[in-house]
Each structure stands twice: as structure tokens, then as C-alpha cells.
Simulated scan of single mutants.
Amino acid sequence: MKKSTANHMHRKRRKNNLTWLFALLGILVLFLGTILAFLIFSELSSKSAETVQEVSAVNVEKDIPETDMGDLIYHEPAAENIVMQGGFGYVNNELLVTLDSSDSLSALKDYVRTIGGEVVGEIPVTADYQILLPDTHTQEELDQMIEQLKALPYVRRSSLNYAFELENDAISGSSAYYPNDKKWDDWSGNSGNNWNMKAIDAPGAWVYRDQMQPVNVGVIDSIFYPYHEDLKDVFQEMPLGNASAMKNQGLDTQKANWSEKGHATHVSGTIGAEFDNKKGICGVASNAKLYGVDWSDSPLYRIIDGKKPIFGDGSNMYCMKIAMLYLVIEKQCQVINISQSAFGVEVRCNASKNNDDAINAINKFNEEFA
């Protein structure tokens, strides 16, 4: 009886030992399998990443092709042919020509061959061409050639190929000038009142403000307020038609007591508000001389009685002629700003729907001001 019990206990311990042995073996196998699976996965991931990088590199190469200038052709002038005088100069063996049409290119080439030159650059869409001459010339000699080119019936204009010397810091944008006008707030961020000046890098241009020549700028708009603190010394005279318009609205033309500023005043300030006066803002052009024409509420649009205006707010074609002639001929303005649609929405819409009257009005306008 005792022997049987002992045998039974021995078999039970042996069974327990085998159970633990198999459990340990199972844990070991599971551990080794986990390590093996991890190594295999890592290898596959590495290869996958390499494949992705290779594909990505191929895609980038495909997505960023070589720059294509299309029909544009540019000839780089040789450094020894650039004549500089105080940061400004010209290329002494080149001329620039604009034709009435790219169809006249063959005629230009025939002429250029007679003086030993050739067309080496072109912008067909605007009929602009770069001419290389066989020899170098003085500016006076080039000016004579320019006049001869201008005399050709198919040449619209011709000029020297001007050259400009830029400082390295100006190119990189590290050189800038910031005016002290009080409403210009933050020049470091992308917001604020002066975001538009930063967008066009006006501070980079203002570095050269002392080299900028005076420019006469004409503004055709609604009623002006020429007494504004930022404009009173910029306007060269009372804008044409403005005094009558002010009187019609009961405004004093002699006293600076008008609180309403208006669109024309805003436009004028954007162009030429006084620079560095610690007031308001400054205009884009630091040396602009402003002349204006008010055609919104003045006798200008009443000059031709009985003719229906083609513009939506009372202005008409003859009024525009007066404004243009006054600013360009009388005041010699090199730049004109017109904050106005050439035609009312109704005229443009009707023309798009093949309305004969609207189309004739637009064609007439194009003939008059081409």
C-alpha cells in the first residue's frame, strides 16, 4: 500500500516537471519567433523606405522639368560691352526694337543685315526684338541708328539696351529704407497697414529714392481733397474740374475743412503721399508730382449736350479726351491712373451677347484711343 502511494507521487512529480519543461520551451520558442519576426519586418521596412525614396526622387525629377522659355529668346550681353556711368548705362553693341507686329520680323531682319547686324533675341507676343551689332559704338552713334530705325514704317519704337547696376544687398533684400510716416506700423510681418508696400518690396526701391527723378502723374477720378495733410504739397494745382465739383457739393475750395476724403484722395495718396513727414503714409513714388481731373460732378461731362454718355456714372468719351489731353499734353504726365471701368457692366454684358449697339460703342472707343 505504501509502495503504491509512493509510485503514484513519483509519477505526479514527473508529470509536473514535464509540464513546466514544455511551458519553458514554448516561451522560448515564442520569444525567438518574436525576435525573428521583428528582424524580418525591419528588413522589409528598410527596403520599402529605400524604394519609396527612389520613387520619390524620380517623381520630383519628373515634376520639376527644365525651364522652358518657349518662344522667348534672350542674348546675354558680354560684360566688356556694358558701359556704366554712375550705376546706369547701356550695351554698346545692341539695340532694342518693337515692331507693329511680329509679321514684320522678316523686314526687320532684312534691314538689320544691311548694317551688318542680326536679331539675337525676341519676344514674339509683344513683337520686341534684341539686335546685336558687329561693332561697338558710342551712345551718340547708337542714338542715330535708333532714329533711323524709328523712321521705318513697321517700327513702333526703338531704344538702347539700358543696363542697371544693382548692389548685392539690394538684390538679396537686406538693404531697405523704412520711412517715418506714422501709419506705417510693422515692417517685419506680413500684415498691418503696409502689407502692400512689403508685397512689392517698396523699401528695397526706396533705398534709391535720392536717385529717382521727378515724375508727373495724372489721376482721373471723382472729387479730390487736395488739402489733405499728406497731399497739400504734392498736388501741383487744383485738379481740373474739382473746384466746380466742390462748389456743387457745398464744399469750401479755400479752406482745409473738408472731412470727407473720397476715392480720388485715396488713390492720390497711394501714388504720392508725402515722404518722411511723420504723418499718415507715404506714396509708392517718393518724387511724384500730381495732377488731377475730376469728371464725376463737374462741367466736363456737360460739355457736349445732347449726346448720351456711354459710361455708367455720367462721364463720356469726349470727357475722357479732355482729361487725357489736359494731363498728357498740357501737364506732360508720364503716368496716368484711371480708376474706372471703360464701360458700364450693361454695355460689356450686351457686347458679350453680340448686341450691335454695344459692340459698335466699344469699337468706336478702341478706334478713338488706340
Results as ranks from 00 to 15, higher is better:
residue 117 G to A: 06
residue 49 A to L: 14
residue 336 I to Q: 04
residue 29 V to A: 10
residue 274 E to K: 08
residue 128 D to L: 09
residue 156 R to P: 00
residue 289 K to G: 01
residue 74 Y to P: 04
residue 329 I to H: 04
residue 246 M to I: 01
residue 24 L to F: 12
residue 45 S to Q: 13
residue 27 I to E: 02
residue 336 I to Y: 01
residue 125 V to Q: 14
residue 170 A to R: 10
residue 96 L to C: 06
residue 48 S to G: 10
residue 170 A to S: 11
residue 114 T to K: 10
residue 324 M to F: 13
residue 252 D to T: 05
residue 363 N to H: 11
residue 66 E to P: 09
residue 94 E to H: 14
residue 230 D to A: 11
residue 66 E to M: 15
residue 297 D to P: 03
residue 74 Y to V: 13
residue 61 E to R: 13
residue 42 S to G: 12
residue 336 I to L: 10
residue 165 E to G: 08
residue 79 A to G: 12
residue 224 F to R: 00
residue 69 M to N: 08
residue 40 I to F: 11
residue 22 F to M: 15
residue 270 T to A: 08
residue 187 W to F: 10
residue 87 G to C: 11
residue 124 P to L: 01
residue 41 F to R: 11
residue 296 S to P: 12
residue 34 T to A: 12
residue 240 L to Q: 02
residue 221 D to M: 01
residue 114 T to S: 09
residue 322 I to T: 04
residue 181 D to F: 04
residue 249 Q to M: 12
residue 98 T to A: 07
residue 69 M to V: 04
residue 253 T to I: 13
residue 28 L to K: 05
residue 267 V to G: 04
residue 26 G to R: 07
residue 87 G to M: 08
residue 191 S to W: 08
residue 141 E to G: 02
residue 320 M to G: 10
residue 91 V to A: 12
residue 54 E to W: 09
residue 326 Y to H: 07
residue 78 A to Y: 13
residue 84 M to F: 08
residue 132 L to P: 07
residue 363 N to R: 14
residue 139 Q to E: 14
residue 6 A to F: 06
residue 132 L to F: 04
residue 138 T to V: 07
residue 101 S to I: 04
residue 341 S to H: 12
residue 108 L to S: 02
residue 340 Q to V: 08
residue 185 D to P: 00
residue 205 A to H: 09
residue 131 I to Y: 04
residue 332 Q to V: 03
residue 116 G to F: 04
residue 295 W to A: 11
residue 329 I to A: 03
residue 232 K to C: 05
residue 215 V to K: 03
residue 71 D to Q: 10
residue 60 V to R: 14
residue 30 L to D: 09
residue 341 S to I: 05
residue 240 L to G: 04
residue 257 N to Q: 05
residue 142 L to Q: 06
residue 209 R to H: 05
residue 349 C to R: 15
residue 334 Q to K: 10
residue 57 A to Q: 15
residue 220 I to F: 02
residue 85 Q to E: 15
residue 370 A to Y: 15
residue 347 V to M: 13
residue 250 G to S: 09
residue 6 A to H: 07
residue 104 S to L: 00
residue 292 G to T: 05
residue 48 S to E: 15
residue 79 A to R: 15
residue 84 M to H: 03
residue 24 L to S: 11
residue 347 V to R: 09
residue 156 R to F: 00
residue 234 V to F: 05
residue 116 G to E: 03
residue 175 S to F: 09
residue 24 L to P: 00
residue 100 D to K: 07
residue 201 D to R: 07
residue 262 G to Y: 00
residue 121 G to K: 03
residue 16 N to H: 13
residue 77 P to S: 12
residue 257 N to V: 10
residue 243 A to C: 02
residue 289 K to P: 06
residue 274 E to D: 08
residue 61 E to H: 13
residue 4 S to Y: 11
residue 295 W to Y: 04
residue 368 E to H: 09
residue 330 E to L: 07
residue 160 L to P: 02
residue 293 V to L: 02
residue 259 S to F: 09
residue 223 I to W: 00
residue 370 A to W: 10
residue 114 T to Y: 01
residue 302 R to Q: 10
residue 215 V to I: 11
residue 264 A to Y: 04
residue 220 I to D: 00
residue 113 R to D: 02
residue 269 G to A: 08
residue 106 S to Y: 01
residue 252 D to N: 12
residue 211 Q to S: 06
